[in-house]
Design a protein around this nucleic acid. Structure first.
Lengths: 341, 341
DNA sequence: CTGTTAGCGCGTTCAC
DNA sequence: GTGAACGCGCTAACAG
C-alpha cells in the first residue's frame, strides 16, 4: 500500500510561517480575522511547502464532504450520457467531485443500499430507479439531500418526464403525415413509463378517430434491458410485419428498439421512411442516418437542473418542500417529408 | 446544510453491547480475535441501532480511501464510454467507489492539478491526457498509484494502442480491395497519435508500391476537438474531393470525422461505399448504418485491464516496475464487398 | 480475548 | 489578531 511519508500538514505550515495552526486554518478558510501581513506569510509558507489540506481530515472535522453521487443503473447509453454531461456542466466549476455508483442491471436495490450505507456523499442523484418504500426510508436515514430522476416520489425532489405527452407527439406527428396504421413497439415488461407511452399513443389515435388495434402493439421476446433492447426491437418489428403488413408507421419506445426495427424493416426489403416511417423515443445519435424522427427528452437539461437543485439543497440555500418537475419531451423532426405518406 | 443529529457511532454500539469501542471496531473489521458470543452481541447492537461506520472517519484513521478516480477530458463519446464500462466491470464487486474527474476540453492541466491537489483517492486512472513533466511530477507527489491510458510514460503503468498498426490495417484493407488512391483525413493539430497514424498509412501505401501523395492528406479547419470533430471531417472531405476527385477510398482518423466525411460525400451526390469506401478509427456505433469499416480499439478491454492493474497496485499486491502495454487495434469489417472496388 | 489510549489532519471554540 | 486545547469517528498498538 502506498505509504504516505513526510506528508505536509498544517503544523508544518504553521511552524514554517511562525504562527499557530489555527491561524493557518483561518487563511485556509479565508477568514477575515487575520492581518494581511500574517496572511501573506502563511500563504507563502503554503506555497513553498506545496501544502494542500487533507480532504478527508477536513471532511471529518467539518462533518461534511464535497462530493455528490450519481446512482444509475447504467451509464453507457447516449441517454444516460447526456444526463452525465448535464451534471458535469453544473458542477464543473465547483470544488465538488462526482461519485459514480453503477447500480448494475441486477440486484440494483442491494447495490444502492450498500452504497448509501457507505454514506460518504453530501448529496445524491438517483436516476432510473423506482423509489420503493424501502429505498425511500433508507434514503431518509442517510440524511443528505436526494434528487430523483426519472421517477416520482412525494418525499423527494424529482425530475421526470411526461411520457404520455411524448408518445402523443410522436403519434400525432405520424397521423398528421397521413398515416393510418401506426404500430407501437413496447417493452416486454410492465412499467409506469411503458403504460404512459401506450396511453399517449392510444389517446392520440383516438383523438384522430383511428382505432386502437392491440395486434400492432408488440414487444420482442428478448428480455435484455427489459425489452428496450435493439434485439427486442428487431424481433418486435419482424413480428409486426408478419401480423400486419399494412403498417405504414411505427413508434418505438426506445432508441435501441428503433434501431432494431430499422434493421428488421431493411431486412424485409423495405425502406425507412419510404415504406415505413419510424419515430423513436430518446435522442438517437444514429437517427439522422436512418431517417428517424425522435422524441427527445433533453436529458442534458434534466441533468443540469437536477444537479443544480441538489447543490442548492446541499448548500442549505433551499428549504422548500420537495417538488416534482415534469419535463416535456419534444419531437425532433429530421425531415418532415421523410415521415409523410 | 444537513445537520447530522443523533448520529449513531461506535460508542453507542459499544455501550449498547456492553463492550469497548475497540471491540466494536474489531467486529467491524472482522478480526478473528473476538469471541463468537461477543461478536454476536455486537452485531445485534449494530443491527438494532442501524449503525454503519463513518467512511470519512475510517479513511482518516486508516489513512486511505476506498476510492479510485478516472480523470478524462470527456466521457461523452462512445469511445470513452466503453472505457468506463470496462472500469466499472472491474470494480463492480469491490467495495470501491469511482470518482469521475472531467478535465474539460480547455485548461485540462489546471483541472487535473486541482483534482490531484484535493487528493482524496487511492488510485488514479488518467486517460487521454499527455503526461507532461509537470503532470508527472505532480502525479508522483500524490503518492498514489497511477495508470495512464492512451499515452506512454516511463514512470507509470500505461495502456496505449498501436496507432500506426491500426492505420496500417485500415489502409492495407483498402489496398487489398483494389483501391489505389486512398485519402487520409487527419487532425488539424500535431500529436503523437496523429503522427503514428500517418506513419502507418504511409508505410502501408509504400509497401504496396503506391505513392504517398500529401495532397490527399487533409484536415478540416474547425479547431474543435483538435480537428477530430465531425465538422472537421466534413470540411476535410469537401476539400479532398475538390482537390482530387479521383479518390476512391478514405481513412478517417476518428469516428466523428468519418461521420462528417460521410455527410460530405453524400452531399456531393456520391455514396459510401460504392463511390468512396470509408474506414474510420474507433468503434463507431453508426458505422453499420453508413457502411463503414472501423478500426476498433477495444476500449472496454483496455478499461478492464487498466483498472485491474490499478487495483493491484492500490492493494499493494504488485510492485513490479511500471510497465507499458501496447494494445493492438483490430479491423472490424462490416461487409467486405462494401469496401471493394 | 478485551479494554485503554494515543493519534489521523483539520476545524473550532475559548482565553490571551 | 492569535494561540492552546479539544473534538470529529474510527483504527491501531499496547496493556491486561
Amino acid at each position: 500500500m502506498p505509504e504516505d511519508k513526510n506528508k505536509v500538514t498544517i503544523y508544518d505550515v504553521a511552524s514554517k510561517a511562525g504562527v499557530a495552526i489555527s491561524t493557518v486554518s483561518r487563511v485556509l478558510n479565508s477568514s477575515p480575522d487575520v492581518s494581511d501581513e500574517t496572511r501573506a506569510r502563511v500563504k507563502r509558507a503554503i506555497e513553498i511547502l506545496n501544502f494542500s489540506p487533507d480532504r478527508v481530515a477536513r471532511s471529518l472535522a467539518q462533518q461534511k464532504v464535497q462530493t455528490i453521487a450519481l446512482a444509475i443503473p447504467t451509464f453507457t447509453t447516449p441517454f444516460h450520457n447526456e444526463l452525465l454531461k448535464g451534471i458535469r456542466n453544473c458542477i464543473r466549476d465547483e470544488d465538488i467531485d462526482l461519485l459514480l455508483c453503477d447500480l448494475g442491471s441486477t440486484d440494483r436495490h442491494v447495490k444502492l443500499l450498500n452504497f448509501l450505507h457507505r454514506g460518504a456523499v453530501s448529496g445524491l442523484l438517483l436516476a432510473g430507479v423506482k423509489v420503493t418504500d424501502r429505498i425511500a426510508s433508507e434514503l431518509k436515514t442517510m440524511n443528505a439531500p436526494v434528487v430523483v430522476i426519472g421517477y416520482h416520489h412525494p418525499n423527494f425532489d424529482s425530475y421526470s418526464w411526461d411520457d404520455s405527452h411524448g408518445a402523443g407527439l410522436a403519434v400525432s406527428h405520424l397521423i398528421e403525415r397521413g398515416h393510418k396504421r401506426i404500430g407501437l413497439i413496447r417493452s416486454s415488461s410492465q412499467s409506469n413509463t411503458q403504460n404512459e407511452r401506450i396511453a399517449g399513443y392510444r389517446r392520440a389515435l383516438e383523438a384522430a378517430g383511428l382505432d386502437f388495434d392491440e395486434s400492432i402493439v408488440v414487444s420482442g421476446e428478448t428480455a435484455k434491458h427489459a425489452g428496450y433492447s435493439e434485439e427486442s426491437g428487431f424481433e418486435a418489428m419482424k413480428r409486426m410485419l408478419a401480423i400486419s403488413p399494412r403498417v405504414t408507421a411505427v413508434f418505438a419506445s426506445s432508441d435501441a428498439q428503433a434501431i432494431g426495427a430499422w434493421r428488421a424493416i431493411r431486412e424485409e426489403g423495405l425502406t425507412v421512411p419510404n415504406d415505413i416511417a419510424l419515430v423513436g423515443y430518446d435522442d438517437v445519435k444514429t437517427s439522422r442516418f436512418i431517417g428517424l424522427s425522435t422524441v427527445d427528452q433533453h436529458m442534458l437539461a434534466v441533468g443540469e437542473k437536477a444537479a443544480a437543485r441538489l447543490m442548492q439543497r446541499v448548500e442549505g440555500k433551499m428549504n422548500e418542500p420537495p417538488q416534482s418537475f415534469l419535463e416535456r419531451p419534444e419531437l425532433k423532426i429530421r425531415n418532415s417529408s421523410e415521415t409523410s405518406r
